[in-house]
């Protein structure tokens, strides 16, 4: 670990200005991912600007329904919130499927979106990695492939995004609010992450010095009966091989509303828009679910070591939709 300076920011504008001006500076909130990566010297900020006390720790009702969640809310608090558990169970379940009690107590909602990939080649500073050191090449693609992406990947990078929470947020059309050197703006979660073909060294569209201050989840009656299912290599304490956040509404036997997002398969939480489109208006049957899942996965570009994720994702989506529709009967 390299020596660094710690600074507790006095106010938001100076924190943003400091990080925007100094390329060696980084925001610090929960630190559960950043500090680990600093110990491994994957990240080597010289200045940490602590902003945890500056961002909201509140979860508020929005006027037209929905919730505004301060970026400083801990993962534990969000998962336990009664409004979340009742109105958006997939979100609560997703958070509880990730990390450990201790980490969830410390980790923030804002930071959760910005976790770096768990790709072991990114985390090993002796290995070439375009995400860590642009232009050095991707050593993961021809290496151990079990955890790598099957959707949206590029030859430059095949890493997956590790968050569970963000998968549910993607399915819920959540929108992050930020403040940066250019002022405040909003970014939908489904447009927060950049394609690795545009340069894998930058995970998100956020500018240097731009800070997530809150996330808003719009009202979504469909989400009241929703689920998150995480499939992994052991029963707990593991990142997803494939995860699925899903909700479905059926009227007169036909699908009248559906939300599906996948985790563990891409550089971002993967909103399954193709599957959703295919399903809308179709009979709520195993055959429709399967056809929709296969349509989504038609774009998959698996490697020999992770090809199993294609049938695994298909089966998990079908199983989730089956369980949700059976539950509704």
């Amino acid at each position: 670990m390299k020596p660094f300076t710690y600074q507790r920011a006095g106010d938001m504008s100076s924190a943003v200005a400091t990080v925007a001006e100094r390329p060696e500076a980084s925001f610090l909130a929960g630190g559960t991912n950043l500090v680990d990566l600093m110990k491994m010297e994957v990240l080597t900020p010289e200045l940490l600007v602590d902003v945890r006390h500056l961002v909201s720790h509140q979860i508020q009702d929005l006027p037209g329904g929905g919730l505004r969640i301060g970026a400083g809310v801990s993962n534990s608090e969000l998962a336990a919130d009664r409004r979340v558990r009742r109105g958006y169970p997939m979100l609560s379940q997703a958070i509880l499927a990730g990390a450990s009690y201790q980490l969830r107590n410390l980790a923030t909602v804002g930071g959760n979106f910005l976790q770096r990939t768990r790709c072991m080649y990114f985390r090993d500073v002796t290995m070439p990695c375009n995400k860590r050191e642009p232009g050095t090449g991707c050593s993961a693609r021809d290496g151990q492939q079990r955890d790598l992406a099957i959707l949206g990947a590029s030859k430059l990078c095949v890493a997956t995004h590790p968050s569970d929470m963000a998968v549910a947020m993607a399915a819920l059309d959540a929108v992050v609010h930020t403040v940066g050197p250019a002022g405040e703006r909003t970014v939908p979660v489904n447009r927060l992450y950049r394609s690795p073909s545009d340069g894998p060294e930058r995970d998100t569209v956020l500018d240097r010095g731009e800070l997530i201050t809150a996330v808003e989840i719009p009202a979504a009656p469909i989400a009241a009966r929703s689920r998150y299912r995480k499939v992994r290599d052991r029963a707990s304490y593991a990142f997803a091989l494939v995860s699925v956040a899903a909700a479905i509404e059926v009227g007169d036997g036909a699908v009248s509303g559906v939300r599906i997002a996948l985790g563990g398969v891409a550089h971002r939480p993967w909103r399954a828009t193709t599957a959703e489109r295919e399903l809308f208006g179709m009979p709520a049957t195993e055959e429709s679910f399967r056809a929709a899942a296969e349509a989504e996965l038609a774009a998959a570009w698996p490697l020999p070591g992770n090809a199993f994720k294609v049938p695994l994702a298909r089966n998990t989506v079908v199983g989730m939709l089956r369980a949700l529709t059976e539950e509704a009967r």
Binding site: R118, M120, Y121, D124, T126, M127, S139, D142, G143, Q144, R146, D233, R234, A235, S236, Y237, A238, F239
Partner: peptide, 25 residues
Amino acid sequence: AAIDPRYGHVVNNDLGGYHFAANAD
């Protein structure tokens, strides 16, 4: 252990990557 055939290193060299049975297992 996941061994990289090109570099000969243990790729999953931490307890997040090398899995032991957890309590839930």
